[in-house]
Amino acid sequence: MTPRFKADPAFDPGSVVVCDWPLCQVRLQDDARFPWLILIPRRAGLHEIEDLTGPERTLLMDEIVRAGDVVRMLGEAALRPVQKLNVAALGNVTAQLHLHVVGRRHDDGLWPDPVWGRGPAAPYGAQALQAAASRIRLSQAG
């Protein structure tokens, strides 16, 4: 029996599930300072990109580009256009394979430093978080 995918519970306090794409679960990081998605390939037992098959790695790259488009859309919606995308698969805290796609601006308060582990986060608030999640789902419907 093949193990089933389950996102590490460590993702739950800081992000919300928005939708599933062909390979990845898409989560919105609950930090309004940055438009920020987390992509978690929906395969059990993955720790490194090399654990994916060749076709899955290609699909992951396609989904990273797609996430970049969504992050840029979120930045535009917040009237803070993204100037640079940061993409990383760190896994130092949560070993499960996941990728961060973060929109950055030269005036974002942490520029040019990385955002990982730099807080405190600025939670969206329930209504704004749901609005951003809905915006993501609607942008992907067409």
Rank of each mutant, 00 (worst) to 15 (best):
A132R: 09
V82T: 13
A121T: 15
L37T: 01
R43Y: 09
A10F: 09
T94C: 15
D107Y: 09
R105E: 09
R42H: 02
W21N: 01
W116C: 00
R72D: 01
V26P: 03
C19Y: 03
R27D: 04
G91W: 14
V17T: 14
M73Q: 05
V17C: 11
D30C: 09
V71I: 07
D20N: 01
L52W: 06
F5I: 12
H106D: 13
I38L: 10
A7K: 07
L99W: 12
G91C: 10
G125S: 14
R105M: 12
H100Q: 10
L28Q: 01
D107I: 07
R66P: 13
M61G: 14
G68L: 11
D51C: 02
V101C: 08
D62N: 14
Q127A: 15
L59I: 06
A122M: 13
T2K: 15
H100N: 11
P123R: 10
V18H: 02
H106L: 13
G103V: 11
A67L: 08
P114E: 01
V65N: 04
E48I: 06
R57F: 10
M61R: 14
V87S: 09
L23F: 10
P55S: 02
Q83Y: 07
L85Q: 10
D12V: 08
F11A: 09
D51P: 03
D30V: 08
W116K: 00
A78Q: 14
T53S: 01
E50W: 05
I136Y: 03
D108F: 12
V70I: 15
L97T: 08
A78R: 15
H47V: 11
G109S: 10
V17W: 11
A44E: 01
N92V: 00
G119P: 02
G75T: 08
L37K: 00
H100G: 09
S15W: 09
G68I: 12
P81L: 14
P112D: 05
P22T: 02
V71C: 05
I49N: 02
W116I: 00
P35C: 13
E56W: 06
D31F: 15
D51W: 08
D8Q: 07
L85G: 06
A122D: 12
I49K: 03
K6T: 11
H47C: 07
V82P: 01
F5K: 05
K84A: 14
D107K: 08
I49M: 06
Q140E: 13
D51F: 07
K6E: 13
D113H: 12
L46F: 12
R33A: 15
W111T: 02
Q130K: 05
A67I: 08
G68F: 12
W111H: 06
L23R: 00
V101W: 11
V87W: 11
P120H: 10
P81D: 12
R42V: 00
P22F: 03
S15R: 09
G14S: 15
D8P: 03
L28V: 03
Q130M: 05
L74A: 00
Q130F: 01
Q83N: 08
V18E: 01
L110G: 13
G119W: 06
D51A: 07
A77H: 00
G91M: 13
R135N: 04
Q96G: 13
Q25M: 13
M1Q: 14
A122L: 15
Q29C: 10
A126E: 15
D62M: 14
